[in-house]
Structure formats: structure tokens, C-alpha cells
Amino acid sequence: MRAKGMSAVVLTAAVALSSVVGAPASAKGVKFKKAPDGARITAYKWVSKNKRQLDVTVKSPALGGQSVKVRLLLPRKWSMKSKRTWPIVYLYHGGHDNYTSWARNTDVETVASKYDAIVAMPEGANGSYTDWFNGGKGGTPKWESWHIREVIPLMQLNFRASKVRAAIGNSSGGQGAITYAARYSRQFKYAASLSGLLHILKPGVPTMLQYVNSGNGQDANAIWGDPVFDRGNWKLHNPYDLAAGLKGTKIFFSSGTTGRPGPGDPNVDPWDIGLISEAITGGTDQDFHKRLKQLKIPHIAHLYGDGRHNWPAWRREYKFVWPRMMAALHARKY
């Protein structure tokens, strides 16, 4: 996953970006560098008046040529012309959402603006943060390849991102953050999961995942395969089975465990899906916690008991972990 030539400064792109006011701009004629597999930036748009929030459109070979977006939060003194690079946080969203999720549901722009680091929020759709199995044939969509082999190189080649990186996400995005950190050992300084399933082979969990993914209008077996007959592929993407790969990475994960509402949660019935799913998630995180202790891998586990699978909990938890993540990246606080 180590892309080459990351230190190049593309001055033409710098001039173009500095002139964008708000309307989408084509990248035609702008010398953005491509990712090694040919993924390329085709458009960009500033979405904040202070020019610190930028949407980038990428044509992705990993996703079959689809055009997908990444939202960037840029630090105060960021400049494409700079000779320095910045540490970067890859912030992943949950299912039934998109790359704007964190910006819409939290004040992450304000929180991130206090630190000298880039934040990249790439599209993840309902892709489960994996290259789909597709009956053993592989092929598109390749969501892991999009995030790892396309987004990361594009950020380094074009936006002055360094190789000092962290991954964090909520729900399936949290599962993705921990999975990527384990599969690409020591490539992330910090990895954090907020209510992510961290043992997808825990008894009962595959059935739940198959049900949820079928409800998305997808062939559930296309993602990791059949949980019985293709169990080996599931293990290759299961944080619990991959845990040894997290040695050397700072780890944080959190979840509710009781199936009861927590602080700030809506008053819902006991059979509410948000309560049930969080209790299941919490059970997988408890197993993962035990696994890390067996492997003697340092980590912070915040298994807080009462709490629903929703934003009130995630807003609280991300504010707890953000300064710790910044410290791991050596990102200076303004």
C-alpha cells in the first residue's frame, strides 16, 4: 500500500484550488496526480467560506469507474505550496449513510480545527469496508482498495498528507477502522471504533449481518461469502481474528452493552433496533477486549453499559478519543 513519490508538490493544482469560490470545478487541466491504480480526481468544491472544508470527486477503478467523493477538513496553515506534510485522520461513516455523515451529525469541523492535522472523510456506502468476495471471483466493488490503495495515495500525492495516519469510525466505519489497522499492521498510529462489530464471527452475529445486508438490497453472501462455507474469508476480515496485527498501534473502542438507553438517547421501546443492535455490538467488543488482553496489546476499552446505537453516544465518545488520537499523531494543538 506504500505509494511512491508522495513528496511532489503540484503547483498548478495549488493555483487552481486557491481560486475556487464555491461552485463545483472540473479538474480538467489541473495536474492532480493519479493513484498507482489510475484513480484520479475529476472535480473539487469548497464547501465552507473559510476554505477549510473541501469536497473532492474521484473516479475509482476499485469501484468499477464510479465517481465517489471525499470530504476534507484542512488545518489552518495548510497550503498545497507548503514543503511540509500534515498527519491525517481517515474518518469513516456507518451504514445507510455517506461521506457527509460526520459533518452533518457532529461538530467535527470545529473540533478538528483546533489541531494541525488533515481529516479525510471518504465515501463508504454500504460496502462493509471490504473488497467483495463475489462467490470467490472477487471484482468490484472493492471498498478496501478504494480506501487504502486509492484514497490514501491521492491524499499524499495531492493534499500534503503524510504517512502518519489514524483511522476512526462509527458502526461499520468503526469495524472498518480496526480491520484496516490490523490488516495493514503498523500503517496506522491510532485506530478507534465507536460501536463497531469487532467479532463478526461471534455466534449469532453472521446471521444478523446477513439479515441487515440483505435488507440493503444486496446479495449478503457477495460481501464476505457464506459464513460457513467461506469462513476463512470472514476470518481474514474479522477484527477478533486479526487482533495480533494491531501490535504497535494505539487502540480505542467503545460501545454500549446493556440494550438500554443511555445519556441523551431517545426514549424508545425495549425492542428498538438501536438498542438491540448496540447490545449485540457490545458483546462483540467485550470478546475483542478479552482477545487483546490475551495478546497483551495495550488499548482503551470504554464499554459503558447503557447506550443506544446512535449519534448521542458517538458524539460523546469521539470527543473523548480525539485529543488522544491527535497526541499519537503528534498533531500540535493551536
Rank of each mutant, 00 (worst) to 15 (best):
K4D: 14
S7P: 13
T12Y: 06
A13R: 14
A14S: 15
V15I: 15
A16N: 09
S19F: 14
V21G: 06
G22D: 06
G29I: 15
A35N: 10
P36W: 11
P36M: 10
A39Q: 04
K51T: 13
V56E: 09
V58N: 02
V58P: 01
V58M: 11
Q66T: 13
R76T: 12
L91T: 00
W102Q: 01
W102T: 12
A103T: 13
Y115H: 05
D116C: 02
D116Q: 07
N126Q: 04
P153M: 08
S162R: 06
A166C: 09
A167R: 11
G173D: 05
G174K: 04
A182W: 00
R186E: 15
R186T: 15
Y190W: 04
G204P: 04
T207R: 13
G215F: 11
N221R: 03
I223Y: 06
G225P: 05
D230S: 05
W234H: 10
W234P: 03
H237Y: 08
Y240K: 12
A243T: 05
F253K: 04
S254V: 08
G259F: 04
R260Q: 07
P261K: 02
P266V: 03
P266M: 06
S277R: 13
A279G: 11
G282V: 03
Q286L: 09
H289V: 00
I297K: 10
I300F: 11
G305R: 03
R308Y: 00
H309L: 00
E317Y: 02
V321W: 01
R324Q: 12
A327Q: 14
R332Q: 14
